[in-house]
Design a protein around this nucleic acid. Structure first.
Lengths: 227, 227
DNA sequence: ACAAAAGTGTTTTACATACACCCATGG
DNA sequence: CCATGGGTGTATGTAAAACACTTTTGT
């Protein structure tokens, strides 16, 4: 059985990072080709003997040096004219990382990798703007019904970091008291016992996310949800 | 630029139907090949000049004669050994249809198409069991935050049909009064003015789903949700 | 008149929302 | 002692959950 088909399959990674400057995406700059003045999502063609997820992880590693905390399949983009050179169907993956914990590979593979603030994006190649839009809306909705925010923060963090993260990404204000009350009531955060003092102001207790505890609670039927 | 890659890309359709016997899936029976004693999801290879969604619709039409009310991308399956003949990455689509409104194409294309009750499935080829599992859980969760149930029912229906549908698919009991109160409070159902009488018992008012109204309400910010 | 399914309202409970002052530290 | 950010409790509103009897038809 021989099938005539001339379509290539690729993967792309939309990796979000977060720090005090806000939400960022990881992009690379192709050094040549039609899109050399544009930036692009890390990604590339899938090898014959590797799974999709392995392909994204490999490309991410090769092109940016980054290893994500969290990675899931986002959506598959298959329009005819995505890439002017040939027909490419791309399976996009959506990842989260703490930028501080990952050093960007400098200028290898004829590509630069760089973080861009989400409100300060350069021109993007191909249909990568569309992909990013889908990814962003996935991030926003997922943040509300899965505890993925912690993958963007340090292992231990003051409560205010979490608040600010939610406010930044969801672009709305949150009542500090109600937010804290709700998050703590789930029971998957634990105090590290340490405190963090930044300049003036009362030092903040540090918390850490207990993933094992969360899994247990999830099994037991609790429903994570933040509005 | 020449890429060496020997992976084929296919699409599969998981189409759910619903009638008084319960929830069903549409399957086809390959008449030859390794899996001739198994059933499979409708699907096939994508053509070089067609989009993914067009490919699914075409395959569905060719293999089963069915046109869905609702169709969305589900997930992309790319494991190495999905198909023993070659490496195939398949983009799965998830559809809904009212079986009464679609006549199955009989025995064409060397394939039979048939509805199977979800609790009475035959042996499935490839990784189609996995795909079905993912689809089913998507159906269940989607039913709770999007008004897709109406795509499975007749244009006009008694309220009890909707109740039974939710109970069947979500596999739990629903309080009739609360359910009706909630659904009606959204304001996207309208009475047709007709009544339906089945054997004994009080005749039921018929309702229809006003899609335009729903879109308006959605714009205005209402949130569909059923627990 | 009785069996069968449709239709309907009220009370209770839980959770979301709104809201303002004190505390601990650095300068 | 003042500026800065951290920490906390209560009252109110709103929606979910629990719950049982009446109505209309066919037989």
């Amino acid at each position: 059985m021989e099938i005539k088909q001339n379509i290539k399959i690729a993967v792309d990674a939309i990796v979000f990072g977060y720090d005090k400057e806000g939400l960022k995406v990881l992009l690379i700059s192709p050094k040549y080709g039609k899109f050399k003045d544009f930036w692009a999502l890390p990604g590339g063609f899938v090898k014959d003997n590797e799974t999709l997820i392995k392909a994204v992880k490999r490309e991410l590693k090769e092109e940016t040096g980054v290893k994500t905390n969290y990675l899931e399949q986002l959506y598959t983009f298959g329009d005819l004219d995505r890439d002017p050179r040939m027909r490419v169907v791309s399976v996009a993956y959506f990842g989260l990382v703490n930028p501080k914990h990952s050093v960007l590979k400098a200028d290898t593979d004829a590509k630069d990798a760089k973080w861009f603030g989400i409100d300060n994006l350069p021109k993007l190649a191909y249909d990568h703007n569309d992909i990013l839009t889908v990814a962003l809306s996935r991030l926003q909705s997922k943040l509300q019904y899965q505890p993925i925010g912690f993958d963007l923060l340090n292992k231990s963090f003051p409560f205010s970091d979490l608040e600010t993260l939610y406010q930044t990404i969801l672009q709305k204000n949150i009542d500090r008291r109600n937010f804290r009350k709700k998050i703590l009531s789930f029971g998957f955060l634990e105090e590290t016992g340490e405190k963090l003092s930044i300049g003036s102001g009362r030092p903040a207790k540090l918390f850490r996310f207990n993933k094992k505890k969360y899994k247990e609670l999830e099994e037991a039927g609790i429903q994570f949800e933040i509005n």
